[in-house]
Simulated scan of single mutants.
Amino acid sequence: MDAGLAAVLGALAGSVATIGAAMTTGWAQREGVRITARAEHRKERREPRHGAYRDFIAVASRMNDHVAILTVSYESFPSERIDEAFSARCEEAADAVKEKWVEVALAGPKGIAETASKLERLGNALAFRVMGLRQYLSGERTASEDTLRGIRDRIATEAAEFEQALDQFVFRAQAALDDDGSVS
Rank of each mutant, 00 (worst) to 15 (best):
E44K: 15
G51S: 05
G4F: 09
T147G: 01
F162E: 02
S15F: 14
Y136L: 15
V102K: 12
S138Y: 04
R30N: 06
K98W: 03
W27C: 05
G150E: 04
V102P: 00
V67I: 14
E75F: 07
I112F: 00
R46E: 02
V97Q: 07
M1E: 05
Q168V: 09
E92M: 13
G181Y: 08
R152Y: 01
T18Y: 11
L148R: 10
A88Q: 13
L12R: 09
T36H: 10
S87G: 08
E161C: 05
H41E: 15
A6T: 12
A37F: 12
E84Y: 06
E44A: 14
G108S: 15
F162P: 00
P48E: 02
V72L: 08
L126P: 01
D178R: 14
V8P: 01
Y136W: 07
K110S: 09
H66N: 13
E31Y: 03
F86R: 04
R141K: 15
K98G: 01
T115L: 08
A17E: 02
R30D: 06
V104D: 06
A39E: 13
W27G: 01
E31S: 10
E120R: 15
L133F: 07
Q164G: 03
S182M: 08
L9I: 08
A107Y: 05
T142H: 00
L5I: 14
M131T: 12
T147V: 13
L119G: 02
V170W: 05
I57H: 08
I35K: 15
A3D: 13
G108L: 14
E120H: 10
A85G: 03
R141L: 15
A107P: 03
R134I: 00
D83V: 07
R54T: 13
H41S: 13
T36N: 09
A68K: 11
G150M: 03
S184T: 09
T157V: 06
A13K: 05
K100S: 09
E114H: 08
C90S: 14
L126C: 04
L122G: 00
A93G: 10
R46D: 06
A105L: 05
E163H: 12
G51K: 08
G10F: 06
